[in-house]
Simulated assay, not measured.
Amino acid sequence: MNGRFDGKRVLVTGGGRGIGRQVALGFAAEGADVAVLARTAEQVESVAAELAEGGTKALPVVCDVADAGQVTEAERKVTGEFGDVDVLVNAAGLFSMGPSAAYDTEQARALLDTNVLGTLRCCQVFGRRMLARQHGKIVNFGSLLSFTAFPERAAYAASKAGVLQLTRVLGVEWAPSGVNVNAVAPGMIRIETPHPAALDEDALTRRIPAGRRGRPRDLTGPVRFLASEEADYINGQTLVVDGGWLNYGYL
């Protein structure tokens, strides 16, 4: 451990698998105590056990960020056992897709409630304590679809555009109180959960200037940077981590 986050308490929502799990492991590798929040006990307990095996103080927290009461209860548990959170990473999110003309509005509501309102709830509940202390770091998760459009992803794109604007507003509103709010926007990241759409892997790889799909660990460095003292003068920004996809003008 290089100790950059020694003595820091980090909460990662959506930390039970994929990118969130890798982010939790990344903070643990630099000395942080890590609270892992996800919807299922099996996931959070597995990741917390993995962290504890490496010597990290880890806390599993079962919580659905779409439920305001559960978020409040999670805050009680985390602060009661860990103390105030220094870093909040909002990695919890849902993905779904389908033809926009027929997309189920209740499914869209569930997605927006998790991706946008869930992020806002966690920012509010844990951010209030940061504001009172005049110090804290929040890193939200956007997407390429915060900036651009893919067919049949209307609700998901709307949710991630919402996270972008939420990050901007909180970033400028809370900066005077010493709380930095920023975001990362992952590109085409390969995770264990199958993508619902069939993908042409060769065409996809050709479209990425870096020449490969991203990996969850490609997000750990950017997230830790935004959560570090090195990013004290960065507010309301979204860092795109996509191997150059968004800037690439050649098809």
Rank of each mutant, 00 (worst) to 15 (best):
R4V: 09
G7I: 12
L11C: 09
L11E: 04
T13C: 14
G14P: 05
R17H: 11
G18E: 09
G20P: 06
G20H: 04
Q22E: 15
Q22N: 10
F27N: 03
A28H: 01
D33M: 13
V34I: 09
A35S: 12
A38D: 10
T40G: 11
E42V: 14
E42N: 13
V44T: 09
V44C: 02
S46V: 10
V47W: 01
V47K: 05
A48S: 12
A49M: 09
A49R: 15
A52N: 07
E53N: 13
E53A: 14
G55C: 07
G55N: 09
L59E: 05
P60C: 13
C63T: 06
C63A: 14
A66E: 02
A66M: 06
D67S: 15
G69Y: 11
G69H: 12
Q70I: 10
T72M: 14
R76C: 08
R76I: 09
K77E: 12
E81V: 07
G83V: 08
V85N: 04
D86E: 08
V87P: 05
A91N: 05
A92K: 04
A92M: 05
G93I: 06
L94S: 05
F95Y: 15
F95S: 06
M97T: 09
M97R: 11
G98I: 04
P99G: 09
T105R: 15
E106V: 10
Q107H: 11
Q107L: 12
A108R: 03
R109H: 13
T114F: 01
V116H: 00
L120I: 15
R121F: 04
Q124T: 14
M130R: 06
M130L: 10
L131R: 12
L131W: 01
L131G: 06
Q134V: 00
G136P: 00
I138G: 03
L144Q: 02
T148D: 06
T148M: 11
P151Q: 06
P151R: 02
E152P: 03
E152I: 00
E152L: 11
E152F: 10
R153A: 03
A155N: 02
Y156L: 02
A157Q: 03
A157H: 02
S159M: 01
K160F: 01
A161H: 07
G162N: 06
G162H: 08
G162F: 03
Q165H: 14
L166R: 04
L166T: 03
T167R: 00
R168H: 07
G171P: 05
G171N: 05
E173C: 03
W174M: 10
W174E: 05
A175V: 07
P176H: 14
S177R: 15
N180D: 15
V181C: 10
V181D: 06
N182G: 05
N182S: 10
A183T: 07
M188C: 13
R190G: 11
T193V: 13
P194G: 12
P194E: 11
H195R: 15
P196N: 12
E201W: 13
T205Q: 11
R206P: 07
I208G: 03
R212H: 14
R215D: 12
P216Q: 01
P216H: 00
P216I: 04
T220R: 09
P222E: 05
V223Y: 00
R224Q: 13
R224E: 12
S228G: 15
E229F: 08
A231N: 06
Y233T: 08
Y233C: 10
N235T: 14
N235Q: 14
T238N: 00
V241D: 00
G243I: 00
W245V: 07
N247S: 13
G249Y: 06
